[in-house]
Amino acid sequence: MTQSIPLYFPMKVIVTSSIETPYISGARKSLRLEQAEQLQKTLPPEQRAFGEAFCGLLRTVEPVQIDRRLCGDDLLPFCGGCQVIATPGHTPGHISLYLPGFDTVISGDAMALENGKPIIANPQFTLDMEEAIASMERLLSFPAKRMICYHGGVLDL
């Protein structure tokens, strides 16, 4: 069901997908921290200090109250209209954004660029590779002229 989000937003607003809400709000343990803790058990001795430091860093992330929960296909009033795209894989509730007025998709961590070609962002940190591949294919199917990737920059299509 498509939901149009009201135009008014206070100065500071925390917006996330409904699926990510319990992790960001602190109601549930971060999936990234769970993954790192499990990986720590299998790291070779020379990598354990780095692994523990990474776990420590993840433990310092403070939860925040979520102001708005989004679902795939929700419409936001930014940039002349902004469509939320559900792009699970990297995390279960990962979202990307389609800005038709700018012919642009913002992929977030759903896609990266390597040597100018789209790839899955950080496969070692992708929680569901099958969903991640499907999400990247979905992003590439949008009628956009550019993709902004958090890792790798801009892909002109």
Rank of each mutant, 00 (worst) to 15 (best):
Q47T: 04
E37I: 10
K41P: 02
P63T: 04
G26I: 10
G80V: 03
L43Y: 10
G93K: 01
G72P: 07
V84A: 08
I85H: 07
R59T: 01
A27T: 07
E52D: 05
A53S: 08
L57H: 11
G72R: 05
S25A: 09
G72W: 04
L31P: 09
I24A: 09
T60A: 03
P77L: 08
R69F: 07
F50N: 05
P88W: 00
R32H: 13
E34H: 11
L39G: 13
T91K: 03
R48I: 10
C71H: 13
G56C: 03
C71Y: 10
Q47V: 02
P63A: 03
G56F: 08
Q40E: 14
G56S: 09
L76D: 06
C71W: 05
G81S: 05
C71S: 14
I66D: 08
D67K: 06
G89K: 00
G72D: 14
Q38W: 12
Q83R: 15
K41Y: 06
P63Q: 05
K41I: 06
P44Y: 04
A27L: 11
C79E: 06
E46W: 08
V64Y: 08
L43D: 09
T42G: 09
C55D: 00
R59N: 04
A27D: 12
G56E: 03
Q35R: 15
L33A: 10
R48P: 05
L57M: 10
E37Y: 13
E34S: 15
R69D: 11
L31S: 10
V61I: 15
L31R: 14
I85D: 08
R28Y: 08
E46T: 01
V64I: 11
R68T: 10
C82E: 10
R59K: 14
G89T: 00
Q40I: 09
D74K: 08
R48W: 11
C79K: 00
E52P: 00
Q38S: 15
D74S: 11
L39D: 15
F50Q: 11
Q38Y: 13
C55K: 01
G81N: 08
I24Y: 03
V61S: 06
D73A: 11
P77T: 01
Q83G: 00
P88N: 04
T60R: 14
P88Q: 02
L43T: 04
D67Y: 02
E34D: 14
P63D: 03
T60Q: 14
E34G: 11
G26W: 12
K41G: 07
L58Y: 08
P44W: 02
I66Q: 05
D67F: 03
